[in-house]
Structures are given as C-alpha cells and as structure tokens.
Amino acid sequence: MSRFLIVVPPLTGHLTPLRPVAARLAARGHHVVWAGAGRWLRDRLGPVAEIHDCVPASFTVGAREPGLRGLAALRFLVEDFLRPLATAMLPGLRAAIVRHRPDVVVTDQQAWAGAYAAAEAGLPWATSASTSAELCDPYPPNVHDWLRGCFTHQRWVADPRLSPHLILAFSVPALAGPAATTSPSVRWVGPVPQDDPGAWTSPWPTGKPLVLVTLGTQSTETGARFLRECAGALAARPGLNAVIADPGRVVGPCPEHVHVTPWVPQQAVLKRAGLVICHAGHNTVTESLWHGQPLVVAPIRDDQTVVAAQVVSAGAGVRLRFAHATAAHIGAAVDTIRADPGYAHAAARIRSACRAAGGADEAVTHLEALARSTTLIPEVTR
C-alpha cells in the first residue's frame, strides 16, 4: 500500500478528473488524502474523504471582471489567484507532508504549492493536467518568459505546472494534436468520466435528436446573453430537442422542445445527446468526445481558446465568437454539423482514442509505478 496526497485548487473542473482516480487508488488499498480548501472539498467529496485543510480562511480573491479576456485574463489568473493561492497553501502543505507522510504528491497544474512542497521535501510528484492547453505551450515567447518568471520565488521547481516525474494528461493526442508536448513524463490517459453519471429522464416522449447546451460551472455571470441566443436558435428548430443548463436562471420562457433547467447530470445527458454547444471547457469537451458528440464551441477565456482550436483542428466541431454569436450564427453552426457527417466521424474517431487510453485505471497504474520508483528525474539545481 502506498500513500498519496492529492492537492487541488478550489476549482470544480480541476477536481473532476481526480475523483475517479482517487476512488480507484482507494479501491486498490492505497491511502488517499486530499489537500486544499477544506470546507470546499468537504462539500464536494462528502463526509468519508480524508481532507487536510491547507487554505487559510483569510485567503480571498478579488472578483474578476466579467469581460476580462486574453492576456488581461491570464494576468489576473496568475497574479491575483494562482500565485497568492500557492503562497497561502504552502505552509499547510508542508504540515500535511509531515503529518501524512505521502509516498507521492499528486498536484493539479494550477495548485503550484503541491509541486513546491513535494520537491522541497524530496518527494516524487505528479501533475494532474486537468486541461491539455498548457501541454501545447500556447504562449508567445514574451508571455512564456513572463510566466516562467512567476515561478522564480520558489527555487525548488523549474515549472510547477509540469512535473519531470509524471504528467497525467486527461486528454488524447487525437484531440490535443501534434503541437502537444513530447515530454517523456507525459502520459495521455484520456478523459475520466465520473463513476456515477447520475440519472436523467427525458422530458419528451419522442426520440428527436438532442442538443445539450452548457457553459460549465464558472460562467454564470458572463453567459446570460449567449444562453439566450442559444435558446432562440434552438427554439427555431422544432425538429430538435434541447436541454439548456441555466444555473443563473437567465433564459426566459421557451417552447416545449427546449428544456431549460438550472442543473443537469451532464454524463447522463451526454449519453443521449447528438450535439453539444459549450464554452470549450476542457472537461465538457473531453466528456462530450468520450461519448462521440460533435461540438459547437464558443470559448470565453483562459484555456478555452486553445481547447476550441483543438476541436476545430481535429474536425470535431465548429467555433463561434462567444461575445458576438447570435441566434443566427448558433443555428447555422448547428445546421452545419448536422448536415456534414464528417464532424460526427471525427468525434467518433476521438471517442475510440479516449476509450482506448485507459482513463482512471491507466492513471492509477502510472501513479503506482511512480510510488515504486527509486530513481527520479532531478528537480532544478538546489
């Protein structure tokens, strides 16, 4: 039995792929401890999970302006969230390592403190690449140099986003494309659907093609206009059924074939969908393609632009401009995908690659191998 400390930021999408991995580790007899924002983790993992709270109650993040895009959004993410979060978490993670004595630290690529604390303690650490965007090195040289400069305050690690020991990439090269890193530490394990997909009962007795519309968990404030335009586009297509996830309750009345709900069991709906309209969030995209569903993607910010480009390059979807897409644009994109079987064929090809990648079981196999390893690639010079 090995001991694993799993470090995550308080971001739902970054927790998602690690939950089935942790469940598989526990099922194989390993000891798993989660580290992060204690109350936030407890709300999502339930009363049984072992949790080490390492985010002080005093830690706060200023509100991000809804319209922030591009480099301004990246600067906010790094300077106003990721770096302060790493500083806040590091003392608690040092204590967690002393208390729980992990053999391996598994840290999300945006929980930099996990890499710092593990390397400082001389422990092997694995990166959970909850998005493949940064494996493609998407930044121009000046941004790349600025970003690397953000890591220099910790001398233990050259880049806390990319472990030299093991990177679990929850995607596949068939989607990420040839630009993805060829680092020897990357293991493409594919998406990891939740073990319990939930139940969903269709509100319609007929079997018309189904479209799912979702903007994930972080876009409620910015998504109102786009969701309403989606509703308009789908209302004009009575030959389709549509489910719109509307947590902010911003979509008004719709015809019977357009079902608007604050929340959907996404995995259960994806099993029946034929097309997905989304913000190009990595989890939504990979889960959709795991089910073989082509996509209309309208990226908002952060890694979503890179993921949307991957979808288009792979031939599995159509990209729209989030801030400018109208019901006419959205409807035309839906019609294009439905009229051209090439999109469905590309999605099916990626589905096959995803299912062959191994998912949570493959991730656990690599983590177990790392725990057994006695020879590690050295970190930066001490």
Results as ranks from 00 to 15, higher is better:
residue 13 G to I: 00
residue 17 P to L: 00
residue 17 P to T: 06
residue 18 L to N: 05
residue 25 L to T: 03
residue 25 L to R: 07
residue 27 A to I: 13
residue 30 H to Y: 11
residue 32 V to A: 07
residue 32 V to R: 03
residue 34 W to Y: 12
residue 35 A to S: 06
residue 35 A to N: 03
residue 36 G to S: 05
residue 44 R to A: 07
residue 44 R to C: 09
residue 45 L to S: 04
residue 45 L to F: 07
residue 47 P to N: 12
residue 51 I to G: 06
residue 54 C to L: 08
residue 59 F to V: 03
residue 60 T to V: 10
residue 62 G to L: 11
residue 62 G to R: 14
residue 62 G to M: 09
residue 64 R to E: 14
residue 64 R to Y: 05
residue 65 E to W: 08
residue 66 P to F: 05
residue 71 L to C: 09
residue 71 L to K: 13
residue 73 A to R: 07
residue 76 F to T: 06
residue 79 E to T: 13
residue 80 D to M: 05
residue 81 F to R: 00
residue 81 F to A: 00
residue 82 L to V: 06
residue 87 T to V: 14
residue 91 P to C: 12
residue 93 L to N: 04
residue 98 V to W: 09
residue 100 H to S: 10
residue 104 V to L: 12
residue 104 V to N: 07
residue 106 V to D: 01
residue 107 T to R: 12
residue 107 T to E: 11
residue 107 T to K: 07
residue 111 A to D: 08
residue 111 A to W: 02
residue 113 A to N: 05
residue 114 G to S: 14
residue 120 E to Q: 15
residue 120 E to K: 14
residue 120 E to G: 15
residue 122 G to V: 13
residue 122 G to P: 11
residue 132 S to M: 12
residue 137 D to P: 05
residue 146 W to F: 10
residue 149 G to W: 00
residue 152 T to F: 10
residue 154 Q to I: 00
residue 154 Q to M: 02
residue 156 W to M: 12
residue 157 V to I: 12
residue 160 P to A: 12
residue 164 P to A: 07
residue 169 A to Q: 04
residue 176 A to S: 14
residue 187 R to H: 00
residue 190 G to A: 07
residue 194 Q to N: 10
residue 196 D to I: 04
residue 197 P to S: 13
residue 200 W to E: 09
residue 208 K to Q: 14
residue 210 L to P: 03
residue 214 T to R: 09
residue 217 T to P: 03
residue 217 T to V: 06
residue 224 A to Y: 06
residue 229 E to Y: 03
residue 229 E to F: 01
residue 230 C to T: 08
residue 231 A to F: 04
residue 235 A to E: 08
residue 235 A to D: 04
residue 238 P to K: 13
residue 239 G to K: 12
residue 249 R to H: 13
residue 251 V to L: 02
residue 256 E to K: 13
residue 261 T to H: 02
residue 263 W to F: 11
residue 266 Q to D: 03
residue 267 Q to G: 15
residue 274 G to R: 11
residue 274 G to F: 02
residue 274 G to P: 01
residue 275 L to W: 02
residue 278 C to V: 05
residue 279 H to I: 04
residue 280 A to C: 09
residue 280 A to T: 04
residue 282 H to S: 12
residue 286 T to V: 15
residue 294 P to E: 11
residue 294 P to K: 09
residue 297 V to D: 08
residue 297 V to W: 01
residue 299 P to C: 04
residue 300 I to M: 05
residue 303 D to V: 03
residue 305 T to I: 06
residue 308 A to R: 01
residue 310 Q to C: 06
residue 317 G to D: 09
residue 318 V to H: 00
residue 320 L to C: 04
residue 320 L to Q: 01
residue 322 F to T: 05
residue 322 F to K: 01
residue 323 A to H: 13
residue 325 A to T: 08
residue 328 A to Y: 01
residue 330 I to P: 00
residue 330 I to Q: 02
residue 331 G to V: 07
residue 335 D to S: 15
residue 336 T to V: 01
residue 337 I to F: 04
residue 340 D to I: 09
residue 341 P to R: 13
residue 345 H to S: 14
residue 345 H to W: 05
residue 347 A to W: 06
residue 354 C to L: 11
residue 356 A to T: 12
residue 359 G to C: 04
residue 363 A to M: 10
residue 365 T to W: 10
residue 366 H to I: 01
residue 371 A to R: 05
residue 375 T to M: 11
residue 377 I to W: 14
residue 378 P to A: 11
residue 382 R to E: 15
residue 382 R to P: 15
